[in-house]
């Protein structure tokens, strides 16, 4: 890999350059919290570890218009309302969120391809940013993610007063080529030492060495029938916060909005924690919170890996740990369910 560097003070110029050509999103602080926002002059990069909301909105937004149906007398016309075909760049995606796209790809790019998602993926460039200070809620390493060396089209590292860059894909090369005159070529020594430092921190963190492999020692039905689900789900509020903050949750509903002169067909995120999830003409297949709660964790820890060569449907970002109102989460569930050698 070829590495480039730029003083942190030169970031504004780099951002401005990219933003001239296409929309650039960076994590910035708003009302004390990190959010992705379209770059404007004067905006500064957040120093927070990660954004409150995940980065999945860029490809799989919370609501999106699919098409409109207009009615004139007895005439119905269908109008394409697509807006997702402009190039954009997201800077500052962390390792966990960067991996989440690979998980979403397995769902949305599998046959039948979701063209709304696909268009956004094709038009988006991801510049990930290595983590310097992982938190106690982080457990990305459980899924083979190196927070010090995140995936993406290109990767950035912030080390002291310097930013380092390297490209990983063609899109990443194009990104760096576009700002090349701002960068100086360098070697990977500093980046290597940051990676080591992050790995060392991970070892110290309470969840840094969490493993989910224990889940694989039991088959689907044994997990499904585990009597611990009752206790685990007992105080769940069914609010869906865990699914909405989750970078890998992928369920949506397709709804109609009656405009009086036609219909707007739109989709919005759905949550398996909700009472009308899987409500069908015949009724609902999951009528209790226990079943809904079980679905969330079975999906991520059993069904998804079963269907995707063992890959779990979680990236260890820790948002559900930080945001669940009753502080229950995937780590607690895994610890309760896994078969340990001492059991």
């Amino acid at each position: 890999m070829t590495y480039y560097k730029l003083p942190v003070s030169g970031l504004d110029a780099l951002f401005a350059r990219v933003a001239e050509q296409q929309t650039l999103y960076i994590p910035t602080d708003k009302d004390g919290h990190a959010v992705f926002a379209a770059y404007e002059a004067g905006m500064t990069l957040s120093k927070k570890l990660n954004t409150d909301r995940s980065a999945k909105d860029f490809f799989f937004p919370q609501t999106e218009n699919l098409y409109d149906i207009k009615m004139k007398g007895k005439q119905l016309t269908v109008e394409d309302t697509r807006e997702e075909c402009a190039d954009f760049t997201v800077f500052g995606v962390k390792g966990c969120d960067a991996r989440s796209f690979a998980i979403l790809d397995k769902v949305f790019l599998a046959d039948p391809v979701d063209t709304y998602y696909k268009n956004r993926r094709e038009h988006g460039t991801i510049v990930s940013l290595a983590c310097n200070r992982p938190e106690e809620t982080c457990f990305c390493r459980a899924f083979g993610i190196d927070a010090g060396d995140p995936e993406g089209d290109a990767t950035a590292w912030r080390i002291g007063d310097e930013m380092y860059f390297a490209a990983r894909t063609e899109k990443g090369e194009a990104f760096l080529a576009f700002v090349k005159d701002l960068l100086t070529e360098t070697d990977g020594t500093m980046v290597e030492s940051l990676k080591k430092a992050v790995a060392y921190i991970m070892d110290q963190l309470p969840l840094g060495n969490t493993s989910f492999e224990g889940m694989k020692q039991t088959d689907l039905m044994t997990h499904f029938q585990n009597e611990k689900w009752a206790g685990l789900s007992e105080s769940c509020l069914g609010c869906g916060t865990c699914t909405f903050v989750c970078p890998t949750c992928q369920c949506y509903d397709i709804r109609e909005f009656d405009t009086g002169k036609g219909v707007k067909k739109f989709r919005c995120w759905d949550s398996c924690m909700y009472s009308d999830f899987t409500l069908m003409a015949h009724g609902n297949s999951r009528n209790s919170q226990l079943e809904r709660f079980r679905q969330r964790f079975m999906h991520k820890l059993v069904y998804f890996p079963n269907n995707n060569g063992g890959e779990f449907g979680c990236v260890g970002c820790g948002r559900c740990l930080a945001k669940c109102p009753i502080q229950t989460n995937i780590v607690k569930v895994e610890k309760a369910l896994e078969v340990r050698s001492d059991d």
Binding site: G240, F244, V245, P325
Partner: peptide, 16 residues
Amino acid sequence: RNELSRCIRCNACRNV
């Protein structure tokens, strides 16, 4: 508007 524009309609407020 500034406050409510952040809402993700997770329903945590209602459900708690």
